[in-house]
Write a protein that binds this DNA or RNA. Structure first.
Lengths: 237, 237
DNA sequence: CGTTAATTTGATCGAAATCAATCAGTGTGG
DNA sequence: CCACACTGATTGATTTCGATCAAATTAACG
């Protein structure tokens, strides 16, 4: 395990000492199903997943995407059944960690626990941004904003290179994330492509004119608090 | 301070021993302004507030409403400037608690800390439901669903009586919460009223036919996890 | 290479936005 | 006590963005 940090030696060894079980899920598998009481927290170590809630009539809404390095369900302390599901978007490897293990990190002094806290904080910031994006932005703004967010996060997670990143997300999934129809998602993507703002190839997205996208949706580059808080957990395998 | 709980005597006295400062905000005042590093966590003890994010062009989105008993910013451990603001919707009294105090609760053994954890969990559930509501529901469903949520929460917070509750929220605010125009909010409210589902009077809402509303938006009565987790903090003044 | 899933495109429809007034309540200062 | 201003609610007319319906085209894959 490796990490960026203002962590000291003790903190690092506390994290390195975490016991975990590695689990692999194939594309389309459910990592967590609504109603489960998963019992464990987990950290995505490779692949992408999506947290979503399905309504009874077939509509469904993606809450957010999970990329390598993202932590799930720190609320294990008090949880009582997930109110949403988690779906693997491609082959996903996760580190599953028992409640007890997480608790032990928090009980120790030092900043190791803070690294987890910070992950939870960032996740909440992403949820808040999702609310604003879907609530008060036009379709074109939503798409541009989400692409910029995912690009940023893909870079941080070690995937992606420069202005390109692999995005294993179908247009129907994008639609469920952005509260739009997949037909309209397609039109917006094509329009952005025709305008030279992006290009697409076999699941890879390239932001050809990033500044244009940023201007289009007034993307605030700092909203993930990434610069201010270098306490992110990172993993190399 | 009083609370529902599976807390023991030690837990209760730990909570009772919390030092706090009481602060009063008038309707329209900002309790927290974006960019602030508030330093303290706080608990609403009376009145309603709204957490929101404003875009530069005047659009704004309410993230959620805060009612008495709701806790704000347990992430004080690692925070670095709020990414959103909090607005008082009527006269609001809050208990402001220093970081150090909150930390001391968590460091003690026992379930007192879990009570705070649970508040954070519930808040996240509300944010998630907000995403689904605004992303995948029609205007009528959104209004019905939000009214049901607020009614439920008003009852729990000790306000409201039976099917009625005081809702100090203008139609423009509802619009900013639900991602709609205030004109359309007005039409939907009138329609629900004409249909006999609700009635309104000087800021009070009565759910005349609650079952009808529930059916209309398929409201899941349990989504706040209230029954499963009676660890909510409560306050009487 | 056939079969299914994902993308693309066109045509039409509709829910909600926008534009534009009016009306009701509430101060508030003369 | 009244004229005025201001905020919030209401209603109507028109427009628009995105949904829906339908079909074709391409990509993925056993």
């Amino acid at each position: 395990m490796n990490y960026y940090a203002d962590l000291n030696e003790d903190d690092r060894s506390a994290l390195d000492g975490l016991k975990y079980r590695t689990e692999v899920y194939e594309s389309g598998e459910e990592i967590v199903t609504r109603g489960d009481d998963p019992g464990d927290a987990f950290i995505v170590s490779s692949g992408w997943a999506a947290r979503y809630i399905a309504l009874e009539d077939g509509r469904s809404q993606i809450l957010n995407f999970m990329l390598p390095g993202d932590v799930y369900d720190l609320q294990v302390f008090v949880s009582s059944g997930a109110d949403h599901s988690v779906l693997a978007l491609n082959q996903v490897t996760v580190m599953e960690i028992k409640r007890r293990e997480i608790l032990s990190i928090f009980e120790k002094k030092g900043r190791a626990g803070a690294a987890f806290w910070w992950c939870a904080l960032q996740e909440e910031a992403i949820l808040r941004e999702q609310i604003v994006r879907n609530g008060r932005r036009s379709a074109r703004e939503r798409v541009a904003h989400l692409l910029l967010e995912l690009h940023r996060r893909a870079l941080i997670s070690g995937e992606g290179a420069g202005d390109s990143f692999h995005m294993p997300v179908s247009q129907a999934m994008l639609a469920d994330a952005l509260g739009l129809s997949f037909v309209h998602i397609n039109r917006v993507l094509r329009e952005l492509e025709k305008a030279g703002a992006i290009s697409r190839k076999k699941g890879w997205i390239t932001l050809e004119r990033r500044e244009h996208l940023v201007e289009l949706c007034d993307f605030r580059d700092d909203y993930l608090h990434l610069d201010a808080n270098p306490r992110r957990l990172g993993f190399n395998f």
